[in-house]
Design a protein around this nucleic acid. Structure first.
Lengths: 148, 148
DNA sequence: CAATATATATCGTAATACGATATAATAATT
DNA sequence: AATTATTATATCGTATTACGATATATATTG
């Protein structure tokens, strides 16, 4: 059985590996967005609007929740997207406080390409990520077991 | 069999869900780092230094590669970390161009807490992430199948 | 109808990674 | 050994962008 110090080292190595894989994916994502002429956050916003669950109102607040940003950050982001012709900001028909975001035809075109790329890349990344996650789970359980 | 449009929608929904889970994890990570008194990037840097593979020289360049940043960004980041007492910058004994980064005892203490937290959180997130990835894989294969 | 809550918006600021560039040290080439 | 090329780190100014603080408008509740 390995010494606790060695085990801790291994656990850090696994976490580091996981973060590295994650970062690789995010880098890939950023690059593809750039190549498509979008900023990464613009891409994400489009995705969450076009990929909202059926029947959900895609308001600024909804997007903020999905992106993990404050709403006023999304106000700004969505305006930049509107300027870029990727989406339009439509006042809500009933509640006039709200603004509904809708992806334009052009936005959809770009998003389609990006989504295909991302699915492909995730397919490649999948084994690495799952392996890292599995290792993390194992070493955690092992550690907890020892504590008793 | 579902219409292509419906399928596309589903695929976007899955990708959106995946990004959401990912963002949740990253938010969690940021918050924990903050609570521990670190900036997120400081945490990541520590992790990649302390969690480097055995025998690797943890130079600025190494860290840059792992973090997916330009080296000069890591110069700045590592200096901020040094000021915060999280690591020290040691000139390489042989190659005097290089600077080796070493985590301090304090840095290790903080990192240990954060790593435990992250392992726990990843344990919770794991099923969601894997499920998303699996769905992405499936819909991708399905789509490719249809193209023939 | 007043009070409170919610949704979006504005503006100034701070953080930080980057590009362009510089300096130093090592390696390669002749 | 001298010259050139490459590698590693460093400096500095800049641009992006999300944020906090705050404001405004609308909706909801007592």
């Amino acid at each position: 059985m390995k010494s606790p110090a060695t085990q801790d080292r291994k656990r850090l190595q696994t976490l580091s590996e996981f973060r590295y894989s994650l970062r690789q994916f995010l880098l890939f994502s950023e690059q593809r967005a750039d190549q498509a002429g979008l900023h990464p956050q613009q891409h994400q916003l489009l995705l969450h609007i076009a990929g909202a669950p059926d029947g959900v109102e895609t308001t600024v607040s909804y997007a903020a929740a999905r992106l993990g940003l404050r709403h006023h950050s999304v106000v700004e982001l969505s305006k930049r997207c509107e300027e870029a012709g990727l989406l339009i900001r439509v006042p809500h028909s009933e509640d006039r406080r709200r603004v509904v975001l809708e992806v334009t035809a052009m936005g959809e075109r770009v998003l389609r390409v990006l989504s295909n790329d991302h699915e492909r890349e995730l397919g490649e990344l999948l084994p690495r990520l799952i392996e890292s996650l599995r290792l993390i789970e194992n070493s955690r359980k092992q550690k907890i077991g020892q504590q008793r």
